[in-house]
Write a protein that binds this DNA or RNA. Structure first.
Length: 279
DNA sequence: CGATCTACCTGATGGC
DNA sequence: TGCCATCAGGTAGATC
């Protein structure tokens, strides 16, 4: 569910809310969410007593830096939520898998119905190389600013369909199914265009569309769809779903040309686009 | 190398 | 009201 704008929104919330706090107690229910650890005990022991010193985002991953040299890596998968709770008296939501209680009071809770997400603690030193998912990440569309020429060269080096390429974390880090569609609409490019077929003008349009769409989505604190599964740290829904031009808009008139938005499959995923003004 | 499928899970939705 | 199929924001791994 959560893509770059949602993860970045949570990162900023965590930056304000938990940095500087010390972990008093950790409860983990079940083992699937912490599957990289050999035991629940091992996971808990690496967290208890540690102070949170900073929060970094790498693609869709959150890195919670701890004093003592470790880092808590969190990926929310399709349905993961990080929620702040005032204390243990607040009722536990169904599918709560990890509860972190701070010495200063308050809790951080991890909820995940589908359990595709995970949490693990590892050494901060060399983490980007040691964890394959981080080591293989491509450039960050917002942090790693590059020239249109450089972006075009990367596109030409790969000969993939644009939709698949935008979602490929090894190429660009952080874009998923929903924002890939929104970016391609903003760029006026069909999802099945191949990356090496773009004119220099189209390369510029794609780059601008990518940066502006993601920045705009962060400004609106991300997208919560009909199920309102995505929530920020405080349990609030995002606002960018109201700005969607194509995603989940099958049959609705295109905002540029009034042609009904169509739904297809691309890269194995539901894909929405305008047949008229995406070329 | 890229494209396509499967698996991992629970829950919501729509057709009958 | 129930049952079944399908779909869902992600990703890794197998296969062609």
């Amino acid at each position: 569910m959560p893509e770059l704008p949602e993860v970045e929104t949570i990162r900023r919330d965590l930056d304000r809310e938990v940095v500087g706090k010390r972990i008093k107690q950790v409860e983990a229910t079940g083992t699937r969410t912490i599957r990289r650890h050999k035991s629940k005990k091992d996971f808990v022991a690496k967290l208890e007593g540690r102070k949170i010193t900073g929060i970094v985002r790498r693609g869709k991953n959150l890195l919670i830096k701890l004093d003592g040299g470790d880092v808590l890596v969190i990926h929310l998968g399709m349905s993961g939520q990080l929620l702040r709770a005032k204390g243990p008296k607040e009722p536990l939501a169904k599918h709560t898998h990890v509860v972190i209680t701070f010495t200063q009071g308050g809790q951080l809770r991890y909820i995940d119905p589908r359990t595709f997400g995970e949490l693990f603690v590892t050494a901060l030193d060399g983490v980007e190389a040691a964890v394959p998912e981080l080591a293989h990440l491509g450039f960050d569309p917002l942090d790693d600013v590059m020239s249109w020429n450089a972006f075009g060269a990367r596109l030409t080096a790969r000969k993939a369909k644009l939709k698949a390429l935008l979602m490929d974390q090894k190429f660009i880090a952080g874009i998923g199914n929903m924002y890939a569609d929104e970016i391609l609409w903003a760029a006026g490019l069909r999802p099945d265009r191949t990356s090496e077929s773009l004119s220099s003008q189209e390369v510029r349009r794609l780059y601008r569309a990518m940066v502006e769409t993601l920045q705009d989505a962060i400004k609106h604190r991300g997208s919560s769809l009909a199920d309102e599964q995505y929530r920020d740290l405080f349990g609030e829904v995002g606002g960018y779903q109201g700005e969607h031009k194509v995603y989940d808009m099958e049959g609705k008139p295109c905002r540029r040309c009034r042609t009904p938005i169509v739904r297809t499959k691309a890269a194995g995923r539901s894909t929405f686009f305008c047949q008229q003004c995406q070329v």
